[in-house]
Write a protein that binds this DNA or RNA. Structure first.
Length: 494
RNA sequence: GUUCCCAUCGUCUAGCGGCCUAGGACACCUCCCUUUCACGGAGGAUACAGGGGUUCAAAUCCCCUUGGGAACGCCA
């Protein structure tokens, strides 16, 4: 099977804007983007917004924002700011191409390849159930298929509403095409019945717009998810009816949830936006998605974007569904995170810390130092919030388990010794070594050791007896903060 | 129900007839490092769905069974 097309490479990602970008869609976009870049072709963003009930401009902006966050910039499509068309094959929003679809539908009606159908939902339901009972496919068999256009128009002039259906009953043969990832696929024509082209309101339907747009936009390769495989038959029928050349199709595997069902919005994080908010790096998400159904020729796992573009190949697309393993994504994110410098990590972290209203020192030396001690403890940016929270004075509160610890008779001498020693410190911050020395001094002065030493001290610093090591936390806290916290605890005791 | 697609460790996968007593990655287990954890390092356990063929030789090709998924819409 050959990927080579006589046409120059033009691929598209065609989402319907109904919310944030889903990871399934994001992966489709990624693969199309990689393929376009590798072949010096065009990556087109086309908006399939013919479902008026669900499509909104807000959603469109969200999808574009997610795409841009991932770095998958399109060569043609709506301008992300103004929504105006960018490119010579527009409009790129199907809702702006309605006249075009109408024109082609009229052409099919005129040549007898499509017809007006007046069936009601109730009539179709009856038919469907009857067929299902007989063990047949629940196909519509419209009695209006052989009506003349004149007769139909007359009925419409009396106020009847009609959909336009494509006539399939004469097409008795197998439709065969070579899928880029699955090889030869054969569909019997009776797999579908007369399908709708134009809804009663005149709005076109997916399978119809898709064919017209892919043809008019000179799309060379259609790389889309496997759920569209059965649609290919309808589309082939349409290409045939118009006498147009077929693009090359490649249907990639579905992304599944842990129950091996198509990943749906109902379960866990499935949109790019959610991953962004949870603190995943776009590079990590891209890398991870690329590996869901595709593999590097040398089995590499950590693959930067440039290499993805260079090594991507439809031949290495895996045909079976892939379960979305959030744990592995997290690991991959940690790899990308740890590859960053302390400064870079701080920059990434800052929005998360700000959003959690943690006010931390603005001093860059402190920031770098804090990242250097926490960097190996987090896998996502959002996890940094709980790591940094104990460092923020405002969030210091004595937890219930901390209060229990303060009731111990050893608590008072430990805290008193700790506060006195810290007060004698000359510097704003103490080093880890100095802290360890002071800890020994506290032990000496209070006569307490083991958990009776460590736990009260920890409460004096973070408000609870368990948590991050003190030798890491204390050097990041100002002397004044340490004293203030110790005082709060001491007050609690007396 | 019908049609189509799919089938290697728990998960993502390598494998395109001999290099496979099946390799890598995540997760898991053990040990080392670390006076906790994490990071890091060294090991370990775990898979060709089943049955028939074809072949000197099958995880790889063919058929059947089973299992899973998707589609069958005036959603895309």
């Amino acid at each position: 099977m050959s990927v080579a097309s006589s046409k120059k490479v033009r691929v598209r990602f065609a989402p319907s804007p109904t919310g944030y970008l889903h990871v399934g869609g994001a992966r489709s976009a990624l693969y199309n983007y990689l393929f376009a870049k590798q072949n010096k072709g065009q990556f087109i963003l086309r908006i399939e917004d013919t479902d008026e009930a669900r499509s909104t401009d807000d959603s469109l902006r969200m999808v574009m924002e997610d795409l841009q966050w991932l770095g998958l910039q399109w060569d043609e499509g709506p301008n992300p700011k103004t929504l105006e068309d960018l490119g010579n094959f527009g409009p790129y929003r199907q809702s702006r191409r309605l006249d075009l679809y109408k024109k082609y539908a009229d052409e099919l009606i005129a040549t007898g390849k499509a017809y007006y159908c007046f069936m009601t939902d109730a009539e179709m339901d009856v038919q469907r159930e009857a067929l299902l009972k007989e063990g047949k496919s629940p196909h519509v068999e419209s009695p209006y298929a052989e009506w003349t256009v004149e007769k139909a128009r007359a009925k419409m002039s009396e106020g009847a509403t009609a959909v336009v259906r494509f006539k399939t009953r004469h097409l008795r043969k197998d439709y065969v095409f070579t899928d880029l990832v699955r090889g030869e696929v054969k569909f019997p024509s009776d797999m579908v019945s007369d399908f709708v082209l134009l809804r009663s309101g005149g709005m076109p339907v997916y399978n119809f717009c898709n064919v017209i747009d892919d043809h008019l936009m000179q799309i060379s390769h259609v790389l889309r998810a496997e759920e569209h495989l059965p649609n290919t038959l309808r589309q082939m029928m349409l290409y045939e009816a118009f006498g147009w050349e077929l693009p090359l199709f490649g249907h990639m595997s579905l992304i599944l949830d842990e129950d091996r069902k198509k990943l749906s919005k109902r379960k866990g994080a499935t949109s790019c936006h959610e991953f962004k908010m949870e603190g995943y790096l776009p590079a990590a998400l891209n890398n991870f998605m690329a590996l869901l159904g595709w593999s590097h020729p040398e089995e590499k796992e950590i693959i930067p974007m440039e290499e993805l573009i260079e090594k991507f190949s439809v031949h290495r697309l895996h045909p079976s569904g892939a379960v979305f393993d959030a744990v592995k994504l997290k690991w991959m994110n940690s790899v990308y995170l740890r590859a960053l410098s302390d400064e870079q990590i701080w920059q990434e972290l800052k929005p998360f810390l700000d959003r959690a209203h943690l006010d931390l020192p603005a001093d860059s030396a402190w920031q770098k130092k804090s990242v250097s001690v926490f960097r190996s403890a987090m896998e996502t940016l959002a996890e940094s919030v709980e790591l940094y929270r104990p460092l923020c004075d405002k969030s210091f509160v004595i937890q219930p388990e901390g209060e229990d610890t303060l009731k111990w008779e050893q608590a008072k001498p430990v805290l008193q010794a700790w506060k006195d020693l810290v007060e004698q410190e000359p510097n704003e911050f103490m080093t880890e070594e100095r802290f360890l020395q002071i800890q020994d001094l506290v032990k000496e002065k209070s006569g307490c050791k083991g958990k009776f030493l460590f736990m009260p001290m920890r409460v004096a610093v973070i408000g609870k007896p368990h948590g991050t090591e003190l030798k890491i936390l204390v050097p990041l806290l100002k002397k004044t903060s340490l004293i203030e916290r110790a005082k709060i605890c001491l007050q609690k005791i007396s």
